[in-house]
C-alpha cells in the first residue's frame, strides 16, 4: 500500500462510517457496524496492519490520522448507541403508560373548624405582639361578668331576656352563662400585677333570637393590655395592626367614639369594606365601612374593683367577635351555618 491509496481508503472509511452510523436503526445493526469498523478484523484494524508497509517517514503522520479516524468512529458509535438505547426505553415506557387522571390514593384528611382556625389566627397575631393566652370559665358570677366590669345593677343586658342565668342549688345564686369573654380581664387582674398583655378566646352566650348575625352561643376573643403609660394611641396602633393582619394591609381602619360600661374612652372599630372598597354596597349597607369590634381604655372603676391605682396604671381592652370576623373574611352571609356542622360546609371551607 502506498501512502496515497492508504489515505484515500482511510477517508473512505471515515465517510462511510458517518453515513452508515447515521442510517442504522437497531442496536443489532449497530453491533454489526462496530465489528465491521472496529472489530479485530475490521477495516481500521486492517489499515493498522498495512501501516507497517509504509515508508518509515510517512508512518507517523498516517498513524496519527488513523488514530483520529478510529476515535471519531468510536465516539460516533457510542453516541448512536445512546440514541438508540433511549429511543428503545422511550418505546417501552410509552407501552407502560397509565391513566394518570384516575384519582390518587390518600388517607382521609379532616379539618379544624373555621371558628378554631380564626381563633388561632387571632391568637397568633397577638402572640406576635407579645400577648399570652388565658381562658376563663363559661359559667360566671354576676360579679365577674357585670359588676366588676362597671355594669350597673339596672343595666338592660342583665335582664332575664338577655342573659342566661343558672338555677341555684337552693340558695340565691348569681351564676350565669358569661355574655362575653371580658370577665377574664377581672380574673387575671385580680391574680396578677401588670404588665399584662393577654388574649382570651372562648364561648359566650346571649339570649338572642337566632338570625343571620346572632346565635345564642358565639365565640369571642377578649384582649387587654395593662401597664404604665398605655395610651389610646396604643390601642389604635394595636388594633390597626390586627385589622391589617386579618383583612389585609390595604384596608382602612377607623375608630368611632362609642359607649361601653367597662371602657372609657370607648371606640367601635370599622374596616373599609372589601367588596366596594369604600364606595358603598349591600354588605356595608352603603356606608363603605364594616364594624369589626368594640374597644376602649379600661375604665378606672374597673381598676378600682381589682385594686389597681388608675393614676399608676392604664390599659386598653377589646373584644373581637369570631363569627363576625369569619363572616366578613370569608363572606359568609349567615353565621348560623357555622354552628350547623353540615359536612358539605365543614369540608368546603
Amino acid at each position: 500500500m502506498d501512502a496515497e491509496s492508504g489515505y484515500r481508503e482511510l477517508e473512505n472509511i471515515a465517510r462511510r462510517a458517518v453515513e452508515t452510523l447515521q442510517a442504522v436503526e437497531t442496536l443489532e445493526d449497530l453491533e454489526h457496524l462496530r465489528i465491521e469498523f472496529l472489530g479485530r478484523s475490521g477495516s481500521i484494524a486492517r489499515l493498522f496492519q498495512e501501516l507497517r508497509e509504509l515508508d518509515s517517514s510517512e508512518r507517523p503522520a498516517f498513524g496519527k490520522r488513523l488514530n483520529e479516524v478510529k476515535k471519531e468512529i468510536e465516539s460516533r458509535l457510542e453516541a448512536r448507541e445512546q440514541e438508540l438505547q433511549s429511543r428503545l426505553e422511550g418505546l417501552r415506557m410509552s407501552r407502560e403508560s397509565i391513566d394518570i387522571t384516575l384519582p390518587g390514593r390518600s388517607e382521609k384528611l379532616g379539618r379544624k373548624h373555621l371558628i378554631t382556625r380564626i381563633i388561632e389566627e387571632i391568637e397568633d397575631i397577638f402572640i406576635g405582639m407579645g400577648y399570652q393566652l388565658q381562658e376563663g370559665p363559661e359559667v360566671e358570677t354576676d360579679y365577674y361578668n357585670f359588676e366588676a366590669l362597671n355594669t350597673p345593677e339596672w343595666h338592660p343586658a342583665k335582664s332575664l331576656a338577655d342573659t342566661f342565668y343558672v338555677e341555684a342549688d337552693g340558695a340565691k345564686s348569681t351564676a350565669l352563662l358569661r355574655t362575653h369573654t371580658s370577665p377574664v380581664q377581672i380574673r387575671v387582674m385580680e391574680s396578677r400585677k401588670p404588665p399584662l398583655f393577654i388574649v382570651s378566646p372562648g364561648k359566650a352566650y346571649r339570649r338572642d333570637v337566632p338570625d343571620a348575625s346572632h346565635t345564642p352561643m358565639f365565640h369571642q376573643v377578649e384582649g387587654f393590655a395593662v401597664d404604665r403609660h398605655i395610651t389610646l394611641g396604643d390601642l389604635k396602633g394595636t388594633l390597626e395592626l390586627f385589622c391589617h393582619e386579618i383583612f389585609g394591609a390595604e384596608r382602612e381602619v377607623r375608630f368611632r367614639p362609642h359607649f361601653f360600661p367597662f371602657t372609657e374612652p370607648s371606640a367601635e372599630v370599622d374596616v373599609s369594606c372589601g367588596i366596594c372598597e369604600g364606595s358603598g354596597c349591600r354588605l356595608c349597607k352603603q356606608t363603605g365601612w364594616l364594624e369589626i369590634l368594640g374597644a376602649g381604655m379600661i375604665d378606672p372603676n374597673v381598676f378600682g374593683y381589682v385594686g389597681y391605682d388608675p393614676d399608676e396604671y392604664s390599659g386598653f381592652a377589646f373584644g373581637v367577635g369570631v363569627e363576625r370576623i369569619a363572616a366578613l373574611k370569608y363572606r359568609i352571609p349567615d353565621i348560623r351555618i357555622l354552628l350547623e356542622q353540615d359536612f358539605r360546609f365543614l369540608q368546603s371551607i
Partner: peptide
C-alpha cells in the same frame, strides 16, 4: 375620665397618632 372622653371624641380619634405599647420585657406565646 368622662371629661377625658369628651375631649378625646371632640378632638377626633383620627387625630391621635397610632402607636404600639412600649415593650417592658414581655414575651408572647402559648
Amino acid at each position: 375620665i368622662d371629661l377625658v372622653e369628651e375631649v378625646a371624641r371632640l378632638y377626633g380619634y383620627s387625630r391621635i397618632p397610632s402607636t404600639l405599647p412600649a415593650s417592658r420585657g414581655r414575651y408572647g406565646g402559648l
